[in-house]
Each structure stands twice: as C-alpha cells, then as structure tokens.
Simulated scan of single mutants.
Amino acid sequence: MKEKVMILFMIFTIIGTAQKKKNGTIYIEHPAIKVVEEMEKAFAAGNKDKVASYVSEDFKSYNGSDTNKDAKGKTKENLLNNVTFWKENISYLKIERSAGAYPDALEYKDTTNDDVVWVQTWTHLTGVHNKTGVKLDMPFHRLYVVNKDNKIQTMINYFDESVYDEIGASFTERKNGTIYNHHENINKVRRMIHAFENDDLEIAYKFYDEKCKFKNIHMPLNETYTLEESIEGDLKFKEKFEINSIDIQGYPDYLNYGIRDSKVVQSWWIVRLTRKSDQKKINVPIMFLHDFNDDGMITMESAYYSAKLLED
C-alpha cells in the first residue's frame, strides 16, 4: 500500500511539474522601462520632438478595448499630433505610476518575440480640459513593445473612455429638467419645517419615507443615519435648545432633473434658538436638500450648517 501511495505521489508531482513551462524573464528594472516612462513624461510635458525620439518610424498604437477586427492602429504621426492636441487642450497634465504599482519588462523566449521586449505599465492620468473644465482623473493600463534599438514600436491602451463623452457633451448647451418656485413638494418641506418649529414632531415626520436617510455636512462621506436615529437626535437637541423661530431665507427651489428624474427641494433658513443652559440666543443659517420619491415622500435629507455655532 505504501508503495502505491509513493507511486501516485510521484505521478502527481511529475504532472504538476509538467504543467509549468518557463517562457522568459520579468524585470523590474530594464532599459525598455526607462524609455517607456521617459516617453510618457515627454508626452505629459508636451514635448513633441522628445516623444518622437523614443518611438520607431513604424510605430502603431491601438485601443485594447476596440472590437473592430479591422482596426489598423494609429501611426507615429498620429501620436505626435496627439502630443500637440493634449498640450493645447489639457492643463495640469500628469502621467504617473499608480499608487503601489510599477512597470514590468518581459523578455519572452519564443521566436515571435526574440528581438523585442514587452513593457506593461499601470499609470494614473490627471488633467483639466481647458474648454469645458472637465477633470481627467483615471487609471491607464498600457502594453508596449520595444524593439532591439530600444524604440517603442507598439502601444496598446486600456482605459475608461467615458470622460471623453462628458467632454464632448459639454460643448453644447443642454437642459436637465425644470426648476419650480412653487410646487407641492416645496409645500411639504415648508409644512415639515414649521411643524418642527412648533414642536409637532408627529406631523413633521409624516412627510418622510420610513426608509429615509439623513446626513449632514459634519458626517463622514457616505455615512447616513436612519429615521429612528434622526428622531432620537431631535429629542436630544430639544433638551438643550428651545426653537424660537425658523425663518425662510429667499425662496425654495424644486428641481425635477431630466437625468434620472431626480426630485429635489433646496431651501435656506435661519433657525433662531435659545440655549437652555445659559439662555444665550443663537441664530443658525442652514441649507436643506430634500430628495423625494414618486410618491411624494422624502427619501433623503441633507443638512448644511455650522455646528460651531452650537458649541458652549
């Protein structure tokens, strides 16, 4: 039995070894990496001549996500024109290694790649489009082929192109819904606020959906609290402060957005308080954003105010 186990072990070891086949070497430092990163720096600096010095005459670049089987790639001339375009249209352009990432140089041991080196990079591109103000802030993955003369002959790009859609759309004016200064959702916000003013929490909270989320400017990003937690917080607040008056500033707006059909009331108020501990009068400016669902219920409340005003 022991002999059978040993034979099986040897068979699996041989099979496992046979499944591995070395096909070259990966380098963390290599002349090909240097030429690639120098070219990217020159591109970001808008140095057309320097970029040209790093690429071969038969250079081609490709969009790695392009599904066009007949794509012929872009030439060296196209690349150099791109240098000029980006220099004239993008401010603050930077191309840097992504945090924690570094490029690899791969020397393959096969007849197809005997005289070239593949370099793969993970970078982050940032900048601002001059005309539209759209911010570029996106990861880039690139594969390069560097020839025996240490010139870049191929570049394959992988990146999210959606930011270019936003730039293109920003060249024309487009309406995104309708703004109302009188609307039933505005009426609901006013009734809710004045119910709080008059210590009628039962009425105030009937305008909120039971799954409503609450947040304010002092909370960590993406953190919210529930309706129950909001009620508890309001009760604690009323133990410390008396609401003398809540007065509207200007007029509320109801925005019914075209994109996603979002429904938002924005309003501005002065909350006039008396602190019970020392009878100090405090005026707190506050802005609210209230999101509504299709049933006319508040699903999100966002509050913007200075908590510093409430400190002892």
Rank of each mutant, 00 (worst) to 15 (best):
E223G: 06
E223H: 12
E223T: 15
E223A: 15
T224N: 10
Y225H: 15
T226V: 07
T226R: 01
T226Q: 06
L227R: 15
L227K: 15
E228H: 05
E228R: 08
E228G: 11
E228P: 03
E229M: 12
E229S: 11
E229A: 10
S230G: 04
S230L: 02
S230I: 06
I231S: 08
I231P: 06
I231D: 04
I231C: 03
E232H: 07
E232I: 11
E232C: 00
G233R: 10
G233W: 00
G233L: 04
G233Q: 11
G233E: 14
G233D: 09
G233N: 13
D234N: 15
D234M: 08
L235N: 08
E239F: 05
E239V: 06
E239Q: 11
E239Y: 02
K240L: 09
F241I: 02
E242C: 00
E242G: 09
E242Q: 08
I243Q: 07
I243M: 09
N244S: 06
N244W: 00
N244L: 12
N244Y: 01
S245F: 03
I246S: 11
D247V: 12
D247W: 00
Q249H: 06
Q249Y: 04
Q249G: 02
Q249T: 14
G250Q: 00
G250C: 04
G250W: 04
Y251G: 13
Y251P: 03
P252N: 11
P252R: 06
P252L: 05
D253I: 12
D253L: 10
Y254N: 08
Y254W: 10
L255I: 15
L255P: 00
L255A: 10
N256M: 08
Y257Q: 02
Y257W: 13
Y257A: 10
Y257T: 15
Y257M: 07
G258T: 12
R260G: 03
D261F: 06
S262T: 14
K263W: 08
V265W: 13
V265L: 12
V265T: 15
V265N: 13
Q266D: 02
S267G: 14
S267L: 09
S267K: 07
W269H: 14
W269A: 07
I270K: 01
I270L: 06
V271P: 00
V271R: 04
R272T: 12
R272Y: 06
L273T: 14
L273Q: 12
L273C: 13
L273V: 10
T274C: 01
T274V: 13
R275Y: 05
R275Q: 09
R275C: 03
R275S: 01
K276D: 05
K276G: 03
K276L: 11
K276E: 12
S277F: 05
D278L: 01
Q279D: 02
Q279L: 02
Q279E: 03
Q279R: 04
K280L: 04
K281R: 08
N283S: 07
N283F: 03
N283D: 15
